[in-house]
Nucleic acid binder design. Structure first.
Lengths: 140, 140
DNA sequence: TTTATTTTGCAACAAAGTTGCATCTGTGTA
DNA sequence: TACACAGATGCAACTTTGTTGCAAAATAAA
């Protein structure tokens, strides 16, 4: 785990600091997305609020994480896959928000279907956010 | 225009008040979506900030407008079509955000394709937000 | 016109996000 | 290992965004 974190930071020419390591740990520890508030709460005693903001901003710029738009307009962040680079995102995968447990996950295995745009429109990025019940919550 | 506004409000059993009329005018005046900030700026001298919040909230509840999640996590609102009712949205159309001019429009003519979810997942709502260049901005 | 019900504005507050600056820490170099 | 420098952090102050309670005003119905 620690090696993976070091590698991510090195690859992006970022120095290895407490807050960066801790925040990456949080992302690696669980499969879903994290709200800014979640991160702040889980690191609040160790790092300043401002540091969390700045760290997430750096991760966003470097393409280590991406933000997820949700129907209730809260801000979520999730780890990007390996093929994301600076200013160059491959995050046109599907995001799934469970209405029951509230978890948000990236469904990497689901590909976004081609969408036919009207004449004159050119797309650069397609974000799909699906609300519903996740596989854990449909069992009950 | 004024008749259309009256009709919308009456149909939803809302009293016709200054702020509601004004805000509906803003939506009817232009084809795209509006950020809360836009609305506040354009009505700021006439209505209190709080009133704008509450009016939008009422419109949301009644299904007169819907909110659009965007990649930068700003809050946008757009008018719903006629077949939206209270607690019952038919807004599974595609939203298009132009990276050049910043406008956001609803592409009602583009239908959201069916997406095959992994086993166990059930969807209730699908939001698609496409970033790119709109038809006005590709011409240049 | 009168009355009951809603809506609005105000004030105060809470939460979310930003900025400048001094201090501290990590990294590369000697 | 020690040093110096660039970059990261914490703090304080601030701005923006969103919320709540209550009294005053506006609306709709009788």
């Amino acid at each position: 785990m620690q090696e993976a974190i070091q590698e991510i930071l090195k690859k992006n020419q970022l120095s290895v600091t407490g807050s960066r390591v801790k925040i990456l740990e949080l992302f690696l520890d669980q499969p879903g997305a994290l709200a800014h508030g979640d991160i702040e709460r889980k690191t609040g005693e160790k790092f300043d609020r401002v540091t969390v903001y700045r760290t997430l901003q750096v991760f966003l710029n470097k393409g280590i994480i991406h933000s997820i738009p949700t129907a209730d307009n809260s801000v979520l962040y999730a780890l990007c896959k390996d093929d994301c680079g600076e200013g160059h995102h491959h995050d046109n995968h599907v995001h799934f928000v469970c209405d029951k447990c509230g978890n948000t996950v990236c469904l990497d295995e689901v590909t976004v279907p081609a969408i036919r745009l009207p004449r004159g429109y050119k797309f650069s990025q397609v974000q799909v956010v699906i609300n519903g019940k996740c596989k854990d919550c449909t069992r009950e």
